[in-house]
Design a protein around this nucleic acid. Sequence first.
DNA 1: GGGGAGACTTGAAAATATGCCT
DNA 2: AGGCATATTTTCAAGTCTCCCC
Length: 915
Amino acid sequence: MAVEAPAKHVFDFDDDDDDDGPVVFKRNNTLSSKQNQLNSEIKKASSQRSDGHSGSRASYVQASNGQSSSSQKNKAFPSSKSLPVRSPILSPKASTSSARTSPVKSPVANFKTPASLNDHSKQALKQNKCNVVNEGKSPIKGATEANSDDDDDLQPLSAQLKGISNQGTKGASTSSTAPSHRLVSKTEIKGSTKDPDDEAPLSVRFNMKSSAGTSSSKLYDSDEKKPLASNNEQKCSTVKGKQEKSSMLSGKRPLDKGNSSDQSSAKKPKISDTPTAMKSKQLTVKAEKADEDDDDDIPISQRIKKSPPTNSKTSSMKQKAAKVVSSSLKKLNKKSKKEFKNSKYIKSTKVSPSSGDGQKKWSTLVHNGVIFPPPYKPHGIKLLYDGRPIDLTPEQEEVATMFAVMKDTDYMNKPQFKKNFWEDWSKLLGKNHTIKDLDKCDFTPIYEWHLQEKEKKKQMSSEEKKALKEEKLKQEEKYMWAIVDRVKEKVGNFRVEPPGLFRGRGEHPKMGKLKRRIRPSDITINIGKNAPIPECPIPGESWKDIKHDNTVTWLAFWNDPINPKEFKYVFLAASSSLKGQSDKEKYEKARMLKEYIKNIRAAYTKDFTSKDVTKRQIAVATYLIDKLALRAGNEKDDDEADTVGCCTLKVGNVECIPPNKLKVKSVYVPGKDTFDFLGKDSIQYVNTVEVELPVYNAIGQFHTGKSKSDDLFDKLDTNKLNAHLKELMPGLTAKVFRTYNASITLDEMLNKETKDGDVAEKVVIYQRANKEVAIICNHQRSISKSHSAQMSRLTEKITELKGVLKELKIDLDRAKKGKPPLKDADGKQKRNLTPEVLEKKIAQTNAKIEKMERDMQTKEDLKTVALGTSKINYLDPRITVAWCKRHEVPIEKIFNKSLLAKFAWAMDVDPDFRF
DNA sequence: GGGGAGACTTGAAAATATGCCT
DNA sequence: AGGCATATTTTCAAGTCTCCCC
């Protein structure tokens, strides 16, 4: 079945076009042109800050090799040479590199507890070594050379250095030739970084200004219930004035059109790519780099390695921290490590120049395709029709089983679900089948069989379970990895989706439809030109198509059977460099917004009263996106659930409450709500916020003459809105506001609220901030079924403890008087305890009660709030990592294994990093 | 400039694993 | 050692946004 990619292949395969060069290990150097451009912009912007760039680079490095040392049997890619693996745990190297790169600062946080840390670090070191070897380039060397060339990524060396050495200076940017106003302005603004206001979420600002309203919570203090906007209030700032002014003055912001336009043009080129534009930009940015540096071709990891030693002060700190981080990572990775066995693949020569082409996402790509779910195994259990057992063909039975299994889900209460199911299933049954009415079908026997199977599984001994798991792993292993530019990377979703009934959320019109089985002939594979084409795992069948498109990152795709116009892609995992790179770019863009935000806000504020309706709508929409963290709101088809975002808000979604409040409801809550106030199971999003009067008035105007179901912003759609945003800042789109507001809120809260205390207390601070962000972004979860039961159990326990407490107090009284304690509930005589002991017990019990009450409160507060989504998608991990370093909180208290892997690129950030 | 294809990110819920308590 | 609670991972739906074409 599966194919193994012969080792040799791995080695020299595909060098697509440009890569004839020596083998190497490159990482996604090749950003698309857009990316490059953006990057460059971003770079410019960020170069002025001291953020942890160097760090990131380093981490990439490690990442890539991280595992090299282990080697061995990787079936999937057996080869004598080992590949650099970049997988999750990579960190080891990071530590080194970081260490090297940055001088240590002082005592810094140890990320981890000593013991483990040490171990890890050792390992890490070891690993590093290995890596080095493998790569052929020693890290050291890399480091040393850094200057020479590529390090790429992110900025000219000079810039980097500068940036590092003086953080907030504009130096870097200036040096980087970029002529644009924007740049300048940024630079200038930079100085104002501290201006709280500026950085603060809009809501905050507004609040400050108007002390009004709804929101009155105190600073970040959790006012838990408050809707986002309200939460953050105050923060205002004293400081602001001056800085603000200066930035304003510099105010080049909107003007940037020039730039932006060019950028956009640059962006366009997909395939055609406009190297020029990009290039020039790059040049600018990297001005001082030698051209040799095409580092484009160099793997990020490598580039990273090379990063120049900064001598900075912080290094020791960094080093330590980094180590810690890495070690922990490493540990985590152990497992994965095992899997990676061959790691010697990397060679480290420089890669050939791929630099110019902006679109290119990779040069060589090798993988084994995808794995299919096993064929259906008929169970022979018969459903009852009108009370009589019915024979079904395996195909019919398979679909019947899909339905039966959903017996106790809410879908069974949805007529649409049943209707769609029946339409598809009855087709399978055929016209003349006995079964003519779904309501007469009793699927219980199948359902019960299903429960039994589940039970059986549960009852298996742990050995059996383990064996099973191993078996599965064995089958899947070869599909789990891809080799991208000679680096082994995890594949995200290599399992083809099994057939099933479509579980659309909310009132999705297609729920219940049969999602048919996907076969090889549905699948298009994307792979390097010279890579072996994955063998089709199902004998006798073959892939639909093979492509060699290196401008995209997908490894395979098929058309969604429910909506054939859409696609399902197989991508690399979140821990891959390719994803990491784009993640980083996302945050850099959001950080760039920080520099522009003040002017953007000023601009839209001005437009609230514009004569031009479109302008006014754009202004108000932008405001809502900024203040309420609304999503853009693309148009939706009729065959999708009816949900709304900003541009698709209906009149009925926004209610004006005099004198100046808006009640916004039903704004896209996946699966929960739609505009029309649904069933009981839909949780409505409702948020009442106070807004500036001009906004309030403008909304009133947009309402007039329309019915509730008309579009509130009738002159607007996401294209127009984003086009406008791009005029304000290169690359700016609606979603950037979410990222920005989420990250800036975390950064500020953490920095304001963190006090001395033990780790646990700091973690609580973090969680509070995280929660604040989740609320801002409206990340909800459904209340767990057992929530109320759990709460009452806790209440019971507390009551019980209080009883104990009371008793203890009585006993204490008595003991003080020399009397024996009262008898216990069973009438037995209790032991005689001294008053001291009793007092101690009382204190303990009190503490226990307090803790339980706190836990209960937290549980209640978080019952509908999902913290994970923001952590994964909206919070710049560098904020978290830097904070952990500064406050000696082990990073793994905040990031689990997956997040550590996903954010490997952020681990080396400077402890001083601020968003 | 509007629409659709295409590619990629974001999101909640289900499935599993792990931890904790008794 | 079993049973629940919680944490993590997986799954796959549902967004956003870009580019290209007409």
